[in-house]
Amino acid sequence: MGTVIVVTSGKGGVGKTTTTANIGTGLAILGKQVVMVDTDIGLRNLDVVLGLENRIVYDIVDAVKGNCRLRQALIKDKRFENMFLLPAAQTKDKTAVSEQEMKDLCANLKEEFEYVVIDCPAGIEHGFRNAIAGAEKAIVVTTPEVSAVRDADRIIGLLEAAELKEPKLIINRIRGKMVKSGDMMSVADILEILAVDLLGIVPDDDAIVISTNRGEPTVIDDKSRAGRAYRNISRRICGEAVPLMALEEGNGFWSRLKSLFTR
């Protein structure tokens, strides 16, 4: 029996889909049976972040409405054979799936998979309530900005009201240099304000843009800092105690020399 985890944020553009793709892939790298579910009906995106956009035949609405068997709607990744995607419908109305249908879908998926990772749409309306309907755990993604943290606070309140207690926080796109100079809120600042547990921090990293251009989750690239951060997060989800990565990596001679040997 698997675990259903929803990735949510309230605000759009903070990296929910990227986080879902990287956590899902990270769990698959750790050998887990994983399915990712895109619930952003009408604005399908998880498929392109994962590079699976050309392989879609059926989608979540087809699976829920019985136009196909659930198994037929799941796209198997060619890089990791234990990783699957259930894509969102692109042309249907966003009310096409009900909360009960989502609950049933999650119940079916967790029979077969160890982790069901749900990518939630932005906002707090129908799509959000659907995405969390079948979830047992929640991950809230935010960035170190006033607007994103404010929306995260709202989402945490709504999750707790929906009996999804103790959501875990990921702080995305943090810039060590700016935090150090005092021009960006620190991890401690954000945790103090939101009063939730931290699941991980992901540094702002060009590698995310570059790998997403290709349709490859950054977590595959263990040389990138963001990729390593997502690996750490995936291991923490599996229950391992992994220390937080240092925000700043020196660029001086010694740290370059050290990174030659440690990578």
């Binding site: 006033v146 404010r150 606070d153 100079s181 005092g182 021009d183 960006m184």
Partner: peptide, 22 residues
């Protein structure tokens, strides 16, 4: 004043209000 501090302070105030409004 550093803008990180300004951001935190603004956030704290807006949240007192949001949470109360809620």
């Amino acid at each position: 004043e550093k803008t990180g501090v300004i951001a935190k302070e603004r956030l704290r105030l807006v949240l007192v209000h949001d949470r109360a409004d809620l």
